[in-house]
Design a protein around this nucleic acid. Structure first.
Lengths: 245, 245
DNA sequence: GGTAATTAGTGTAAAAAATGCACTAACTAA
DNA sequence: TTAGTTAGTGCATTTTTTACACTAATTACC
């Protein structure tokens, strides 16, 4: 192995943020239009170089804020992508971060190298810059897993929401239909929802009750190691015996 | 943001491998004694710098092979660690990889900067070089999760093993006792074990049947999306109602 | 004002899975 | 022969999951 360490210190890191939101029944992801080479003018995940003197996690927060104006977002690391030729300017490894936010709570403000910053429907998205298609796909997988493990839906909906909205969100993430009664039973049995004693207004049908998420209780359950698993099997599950064939 | 990209290309990456094995009823991890600064003479995870012209995943394989002699090991990425001051020589981000192997199938051959390469019992390990304690801990968490999701035990045991050995392995990873009858029922119901029609020899008690893992069937089930979840709850699980208090 | 359209909201029975638990079987060592 | 040790097995109870269809409340339209 090399003894001259200088050769190794010629690479760069970036961070790429995959920010999910939910609006009008669709899962959305926040993208920027790049105003800098490489891939100038293309849509990309909001990401940029990590500075030498900042921690990786801090860089993700800063970059997100500089490109889109989003602050106070909880970011979770997902995966490092390190193919040799993924960046035209040299050897660049990127680390992806992901988050779930309520779209209405934030104002998107493109700046720095971002010409625009916009929510895009995840379904039927066009090609993204760099290997960002792959990065997005890996975060979608993470989200799918997460939704089965934690009641993440609450992160994506406005403070007050109906059970049907919550169910549609789950269906959008899992990409499969759920049974209404079983879904409600399961969600309500977690005791995480508080009845707001209010109903929808301005809808041309029976108005639904509004609920909000009880974050205190959620934190308490997490602390106690509660298992939030949502198991809903929308399509008939095959048994071990059937699989033996 | 900076327009001089050169400033960003002054960092380095490393990979660190967390290789788990199982022997004599204990979970083991493969460590090397470093023969190079920084942290010379200390025990560390087998890791080294990624070359500029190699993919990240390939680097993990190469480094593992060069330091310990292990080849043909399936490595899975776990997490990137990027605190500013984690390496004395400059800004170095490391990406951890983990694997499960059968100790007896491999010959450990320290070379390159590894003065020694040895299996260490995970429990009660001394302090490791760099932030490798943290890295190891995060891989242990991953392993704990994995064992509930996939029948990973088979990766760690010799080709022929007894059900009791398999149970002890699970107990070592999960750090809690399991019920013998329920464990056997569950494992056998997956139809992943083949009875070898052999029994243990040279034990001073009733000899146990030997089983082997049916990898073909395993691959088939994975392909069909089978859920391997092992749910064994060794200590009484609290209900939602009880937690409300 | 009545009715059609639309979504909200609710319960139960059957099947499957998880749980808790204690004795007999087979072998070796002394 | 016996004591010691680990292997191996079943069942009844509880809990969880699943499948499934009707009534309730509101608006829009005639």
């Amino acid at each position: 192995m090399a003894t001259n360490f200088d050769n190794y210190f010629k690479s760069a890191f970036t961070v790429d943020n995959v920010i999910f939101g939910f609006d009008e029944g669709d899962l959305k992801v926040l993208l920027i239009k790049r105003g800098e080479e490489p891939h100038i003018g293309e849509w990309a995940l909001p990401g940029y170089f990590v500075k030498t003197e900042e921690d990786l996690d801090a860089a993700a927060k800063r970059v997100l804020s500089e490109l889109t104006g989003l602050t106070n977002v909880y970011l979770e690391q997902v995966h490092a992508f390190g193919s040799v030729n993924r960046h035209a300017f040299g050897r660049v490894i990127t680390v992806s971060y992901f988050s779930l936010i309520k779209i209405d709570n934030y104002i998107i403000q493109p700046s720095s190298i971002a010409l625009q910053a916009q929510w895009h429907t995840v379904n039927g998205l066009q090609h993204l810059a760099f290997d960002h298609d792959t990065i997005l796909e890996s975060c979608l997988q993470r989200l799918k897993w997460l939704v089965k493990t934690r009641p993440v839906g609450f992160e994506l909906l406005p403070p007050k929401f109906t059970l049907t909205e919550l169910q549609h969100l789950y269906e959008a993430i899992l990409r499969s239909p759920l049974d209404k009664r079983n879904f409600r039973k399961k969600i309500l049995s977690m005791n995480l929802l508080v009845d707001c004693d209010e109903t929808q207004e301005g809808v041309a049908h029976r108005p639904a009750k509004l609920y909000k998420f009880d974050r205190k209780r959620y934190n308490k359950l997490v602390e106690q190691g509660f298992n939030f698993e949502l198991k809903e099997t929308p399509i008939k599950k095959k048994t071990t015996a059937e699989l033996s064939s």
